[in-house]
Design a protein around this nucleic acid. Sequence first.
DNA 1: TTGAAAGCGCTACCAG
DNA 2: CTGGTAGCGCTTTCAA
Lengths: 340, 340
Amino acid sequence: MSQLPKQSAERSVPTSADVARLAGVSRATVSYVLNNTAAVRISEPTRRRVRQAAEELGYVPHAAARSLRAGHTRMVLLPTAHAPVGPLYHRFLRELQWALRRLDYTVVQYGSLGLDGDEAARAWAELRPVAVVSLGEVALTAHGVDVLKRSGAKAVITLGPERVEGAHSLVMDQREIGGRAIAHLIGRGYRDIGFLLPEEPGLGLFSRPRLEGATEAALRAGARIEPLPMAYDEESAAALAARWRGLGLDAVYAYNDEHAMLLMRALQDEGVEVPRETAVIGADNLLLGKLLRPRLSTVQIDLVAGRSLAELVDRVVRDPGGEPERHDLMRARVVHRESS
Amino acid sequence: MSQLPKQSAERSVPTSADVARLAGVSRATVSYVLNNTAAVRISEPTRRRVRQAAEELGYVPHAAARSLRAGHTRMVLLPTAHAPVGPLYHRFLRELQWALRRLDYTVVQYGSLGLDGDEAARAWAELRPVAVVSLGEVALTAHGVDVLKRSGAKAVITLGPERVEGAHSLVMDQREIGGRAIAHLIGRGYRDIGFLLPEEPGLGLFSRPRLEGATEAALRAGARIEPLPMAYDEESAAALAARWRGLGLDAVYAYNDEHAMLLMRALQDEGVEVPRETAVIGADNLLLGKLLRPRLSTVQIDLVAGRSLAELVDRVVRDPGGEPERHDLMRARVVHRESS
DNA sequence: TTGAAAGCGCTACCAG
DNA sequence: CTGGTAGCGCTTTCAA
């Protein structure tokens, strides 16, 4: 007030006090009007003046101030994936966000690239989210969960291959995927089975449990599982294909459809016939599998609907004491086509 | 204090005052110690006591309170994509986040699914981000930009096909992609060229400018461009392929490699030979293009490094008055293989 | 029907 | 070297 603004751009952001001043009312009244507070009656002319003033100033409430006052937020924090994720996962995430928004939560994805589990948990806790839904990208520890809970998070939900102590863990058992694929191959008479293990580090969380499941299934049937590390590029695939015949395998589970496509092409270029010499099965049931020749057998993965997870989040937020619920998060079944 | 806590879980979240009490110092001292404030000297024993107390209570600072006090945040808000995005985009986003974090920003992705441009801008403004980097998923208007700026955002940067008034727009000219593809086909002697237009709504922002660019290139050379709407599924592709010969086309640009693969398969199933009867070119230079037979020609798109965009964000935040800089955000070049 | 004022958690100024 | 304290923007009692 005492001196003229240096810049037009320097004008400070309007607060509810500014709105009150312009409308000629108190800040309390502004709050009542803009929040449609039911417990109090404000005359229509006053309401109009307030809204008008807010509009004129371009007033936008300050979320931090509001939640500071309220003592809690409606923020649900979703740690962002590091690894490239497929369309399945993408759709699930979109559904989840949409459903949470409908339940009046503010959904925020927080990239925690380069932070370890406990650092990440601390960073998240600073934002005081009311819920955290961790989809397995960050290895949340019992300690991390505790930090979040102590910072006021009502719900800490993890989806992943393993339980996390203290969290409301929904175990997404990736072992089933590997198990189904191998059982299918065994059922069709294959006995020496390769397991394509992607070398990308971010995928370990998914591929290792699948390998476990595969190994168990093979063990039960007396079949052999051979882990085959391979990077997602042509050279690596070609190198693997070149030594293929020496491996003595009659089938391979290729982690997912994209890896399967890569390997299948390399095998074909090497003159290995699919499925006569070697059967191939992928996972994820991507469209591309149907376009390949031979058409690619695959493991179809059905994720829980984002909507029902959103409802679970809401339930846990409202009653944090409730018993952890068991959920079937994932269902896997084989789609048999021509490659196996 | 007056009554015993109802639940062990009900214990409230520790504040810096709690830490101060436990350490036997003032809140100011706690703040100095935990923030390593250089301007003030605190004795080593005191520091230790404070840190010890903070540790013991599991104290985590309250970001909202801090930024309220500070009058600004270090939050960079990235609106989340609605449409399924390719690996290119994913990598770019990851790089950008990583680089911003290194510059000490808190990066947050905010899904604005189902909000229009102005609603979204308001929702973002409530969080008082210091910068917003909109990658074209939400149609930000001049008004939306104004709302953000008035709420204190120093940098509003849009990457997209079109300039946005008031924002620091980096025009990512998707027309070049369509243009290059068509120029390539024309250079190889094709004159009647289809333009595969994906029907997914989220892709319109990308496909329309590409069509424009394609049309311009065709016009210059006296070639014909035929827009061909197609959904990303087998039925739609088969339907298009079934009427292919009636269209009188000798080449087609298929939006991206995945659509190209889908269409190429449908054409082959219909007995249309590629490239003899119809040449095909995609875009994005995905690995799968190299695996197809014939190998797929494509438009390789080089996005600006996430790192340099992060540096731009930082520069604009520090000097919001600076002149908008021109940037080459994207470079496109044709990779010729066998399908064209 | 409206206004005054307290206080959420934090930091930075100014005293001691 | 440390503590008291004002105040960021907001909501919500309580009083007028």
